[in-house]
Structures are given as C-alpha cells and as structure tokens.
Design a protein around this nucleic acid. Structure first.
Length: 396
DNA sequence: TCTGGGGTCCTAGGACCC
DNA sequence: TCTGGGGTCCTAGGACCC
C-alpha cells in the first residue's frame, strides 16, 4: 500500500440543545413554547388551577440545571441559584430533574450516533466528540453531510430533540464552534478560517479558560482570543506557569493535538449533599451521622454496581461561609463495603478543623457533606461478597 | 439572591526509600 | 561537617467542565 501522507483530521463536537428541558418536552408536549427550567430533585406541587409547578413557589438552596430557550429570554440560565431565578421569572415552569429519564435519552441518541460513525468520546450525558477522519478521508464536505445525517438520526431516536454540531480539525475548535449557532446548528471551521471565526470571540468561550483565568487575562488587557494570540509566550508563562501558559499560547492559534479519549474506568466516585439548613456539629450530631451513613451506603452500592474497590476514601465538608475542606484517608488495604467506607470517613472526620469556640463560629456548622472513593481498582473474584473462588465451590 | 452534584486534571509539599 | 538527587506515594487545595 502506498502511503500518501497524513489525512487532515476531522473532529466533530455534538452538543444536545438544552438537554434536560428538551427531555421534559419530549415527554410532555404541553410544555412546548413555554419557559421551562429544570432544577432540584424533589418536585413541588402545582398551585390550584395550574398544570405545572411554577418557579415562584420554590423555597430552598438549589440551582437550575437547565433553562430552555424561552426561559433564557427571561434571563434564566443553568447554575443560577433557583431562588434568584424565582425572583426573576416567577411564572416560569420549574420541573425536578429526572436523571433516569435523561440517561435513557442519552443512551438513545448515542446509540443512534454509533450506527453512523464508530469513534466516539463521551463527555457527560449530553455531549460527545466524534473522530470522523477515517470515514470522511479528511474531506470536510463529506463531514458536513455526515453531520447532517447525525442530526437527523438524533432527532429520530429521541422523539424530536435537536443538537448542535461543530466541525473542525481538533476538539478545541469544534467545541467552540458547536456553540456558535445554537440551537439546531451545524458549524464548520476549516483551519484557514480559524482566525476569522475564533479570534473575535471572548477568551471565556474557550473550553479550559474559566472565570479565574479570564479575569487574570482581562488584567493583562486580553479580552478576545485574537488579543491572546498577540501575547508573547514568555509573558503568558510568567503569569500562568509554563504548562498552562503554553496551552494558552497554542489554543489562541488553534493548536490542539489531543486524541479522543475512549472509555475506561472512572478515577473516582463520590456522593455529596447540601442540607436544607446548616447543621451544628454537636447539636445536630444524630442527623449528621444519619446523613454520613446514607452517603457511605450509596457510595458502597455505586462501587458494588461497578465492581470497583478503593484505596483511598475522602471526606468533604463545606461550611456556612462556603469554604470547604477535604481530608483523605488511605487505610492500607482496599475498601468497598459501607462499613469500611464509614470507618475511613470517620478517620477523615477527625482531621477536619472544626471550631465550636463560639456558638456562631463559621466552622461550628456544616452546609454540605460528601464522601469520595479514589484510587479505584477492579474487584477480584475473591473480593466479591457472594462469590467464592471456583476452587472453594465443593466446600459450600 | 447566596452559590447542586458529579467528575477530571494540575500543583506542590512532605515522607520515605535508594 | 551538614548535606546529593531521583522516584513514588500521600495529602490538600484549586481550577475547570457538564
């Protein structure tokens, strides 16, 4: 076979539009055209005369997970505290998150995609990357046609949900451009078009430049990706460190060599919960113990389901002032049962700097409690509670 | 109007070993 | 006297993403 040179890579980023809210609409078409937000786990009852619960009724400490496009017009967006959203748009519909239903739809759209193209990287429930290089032989026109087919397949598989696709030579650029024509968009950026399309955008549009880095860049008078491209490498490395500085320098030039990351086991599994009201570490001891037990039980069953065990258990505590501390414990043997996890979590708890010197001291109460399992490995047959190794079969 | 829950990756110091 | 360099593990915190 003759080698004719490397193909131009073609990477797609496919992002479902307002996924959770659209998922609710698939189930109940009465929601069509109305502002809908999704947030919280427990639902609230509709007021008499209303077909759905309204945002204005909400009381609690949650945030919105999703707002559909009608709700966004009212100023709502994901991660917005629900109480704030309630002030802003009391008449919008508020639905509780139903993660099982969203997972079902997630599986459906991903399966539909895999029917058309095989190389997929999962990025959570509503996003994927696809490597279309082989299938399209590096031809952007073929890729555009394939992307149109993908959009249709997703729609068919989900009962009408739309997605937006970005197409370019790498993950970074495709991720940026899938966002440019939402909803129901298809945006293709060839390498020579990078500067025209991406340079005018604010640096915050780049996946990997968050609020902190953006604020620091603005101090340097850098607001757009084009302005970032003017910054010399030594300047960026002086302010952001060698590694992140280099990354910023390259991403302003559309350089991103990352391959798709396909599957694999999770690195950590965790469970956490924010309380309705802050709990006092002494006065609410019983309630806290119950919550910690519930969290470790859930974590243990997560590990059991995935047939994993952990070398390290971590505890997370958030105080009323929103500061958090984490403490780790590595017992010296791997753990998987609820009892072992709880024991390790208690070791962590001993190391948390509580302070009850004053009754209203910020570190005398807790807002959130979480438990995490990390350094995971596969359970061996002998680890599994109800399965003796084969050679012990006769002894049963 | 106070800020969910599930993750990944990076940095950096100290312990400990060779 | 006062002091090497490298490797790995553990721990804590923080930025970022969906």
């Amino acid at each position: 076979m003759q080698y004719t040179g490397r193909l131009m890579r073609i990477i797609a980023h496919l992002d479902m539009d307002a996924f959770y809210a659209s998922a609710e609409l698939v189930r109940d078409p009465r929601l069509k055209g109305r502002p809908v937000a999704v947030g919280g786990r427990r639902g609230i009852q509709p007021l008499p005369g209303q077909d759905f619960p309204l945002l204005g009724q909400y009381q609690g400490r949650g945030v919105l997970t999703t707002a559909n496009y009608e709700a966004r017009k009212l100023g709502l967006h994901s991660a917005m505290p629900t109480m704030r959203a309630a002030k802003l748009a009391p008449q919008a519909i508020l639905l509780p998150a139903d993660f099982e239903w969203y997972s079902t739809l997630s599986r459906r759209f991903k399966e539909a995609v895999l029917q058309l193209t095989p190389v997929m990287e999962n990025r959570g429930v509503d996003e994927i990357y696809l490597d279309l290089t082989e299938q399209t032989q590096g031809d952007f026109e073929k890729a555009r046609q394939l992307a149109a087919q993908l959009k249709q397949a997703v729609k068919d598989a989900t009962g009408g949900m739309t997605c937006s696709i970005g197409l370019s030579e790498n993950k970074l650029t495709s991720k940026i451009c899938s966002d440019l024509q939402k909803p129901d968009g298809l945006t293709l950026v060839r390498p020579h078009e990078f500067e025209t399309v991406v340079w005018p955008l604010p640096v915050g549009k780049v996946n990997g430049i968050g609020p902190k880095a953006q604020a620091k860049l603005i101090e340097l008078n850098i607001r757009t990706v084009g302005e970032l491209a003017l910054a010399p490498l030594p300047q960026l490395q002086a302010h952001f460190g060698n590694s992140y500085g280099l990354w910023l320098y390259e991403c302003a030039r559309g350089i991103d060599r990352r391959e798709l990351s396909l599957g694999g086991d999770p690195k950590s599994i965790s469970r956490e919960t924010t309380f309705e009201n802050d709990l006092h570490i002494r006065r609410d001891r019983e309630a806290l113990t119950a919550i910690l037990t519930r969290l470790t039980d859930k974590l243990a069953s997560d590990l059991e389901r995935k047939k994993l065990k952990a070398r390290t258990i971590g505890l997370k505590v958030r105080f009323p002032d929103f500061t958090s501390v984490t403490r780790d414990h590595t017992p010296g043997h791997t753990v998987s049962s609820a009892t072992e996890i709880l024991q390790a979590a208690r070791e962590c708890l001993k190391k948390v700097p509580f302070d009850t010197s004053a009754s209203n001291h910020p570190r005398s109460r807790i807002r959130l409690l979480g438990v995490k399992a990390s350094h995971l490995s596969h359970m061996e047959l002998a680890d599994q509670p109800d399965q003796l190794p084969l050679w012990e079969e006769d002894a049963r």
